[in-house]
Design a protein around this nucleic acid. Structure first.
Lengths: 137, 137
DNA sequence: GCCTAATCAGGTGTAAACAA
DNA sequence: TTGTTTACACCTGATTAGGC
């Protein structure tokens, strides 16, 4: 259960070799056109194995062609649509992140002041509004 | 898959849990409607075997993904919700405990090392006595 | 009373939808 | 296609309450 694709060696996932239960068929709505009432958006939850496959492929080639995507469909059991969207989002996020990084680096090479927080992409660390700061008593 | 960069802790993507929608609680009135209706919450009592299974899994991976949780559901006979809550509580307790430990260790050697505060106040700062002091930033 | 399962409040990450 | 927004899955941390 390990094979080669585009020069990438895919090993079986360490956690699970057998994939028993949830081969997810997202069961998407056939009527894509908007019904203002039904706002139920079906969110596919990717498991670790699928993510690993996608990420490995992405690392080798962030813009897979149709053939490649087809292979991914087969490997992950995801729909082509999910594959496509995932790569779209991934490219976008990556780009955004790299831009952020560059800003961060050139902004303060080794400044340790609190002001550096304003550029911290991890929002959790920034009190948004009336958040609280933790200090030692 | 979690790393530190420029003092920012990047956590791995959240583990995935497929939770049936039916498990969502109807969000009963949090307010003054003190209706005499029974608010008895059902408390699951875990037996030794279930605890052992959960603890073993936790030791190997405190953040199981959807597949793993599904297996746990099968092995323990517990609902996905109970599994999820157990892991949440366990992580929280563990974290709290480890923080206590670290703070105990650091208590004697030195004081007033505010290093790290400017980078990560949420994580780095540890209460000296018992509990955190909150101040407005 | 202690331990902890369940709940709550608030936040994060991201798949999906949408806009350009 | 890229860039932005939205909705949802799931998190943490604090709190509440059930069993022993």
């Amino acid at each position: 259960p390990c094979f080669l694709l585009m020069g990438i060696l895919f090993l079986p996932s360490p956690s699970l070799t057998a994939e028993p239960i949830s081969a997810r068929q997202p069961a998407l709505r056939p009527h894509v056109h908007k019904q203002p009432e039904k706002t139920t958006r079906v969110r596919t939850v990717l498991n670790e194995k699928q993510l690993h496959t996608l990420r490995t492929c992405y690392a080798a080639n962030p813009r897979p062609d149709a053939l490649m995507k087809e292979q991914l469909v087969e490997m992950t059991g995801l729909s082509p649509r999910v594959i496509r969207v995932w790569f779209q989002n991934k490219r976008c996020k990556d780009k955004k992140r790299s831009i952020m990084m560059k800003q961060l680096q050139q902004q303060q090479p080794n400044d340790k002041t609190v002001s550096g927080f304003s550029f911290c992409p991890c929002v959790a660390l920034i009190p948004k509004e009336k958040g609280l700061m933790y200090v030692q008593p």
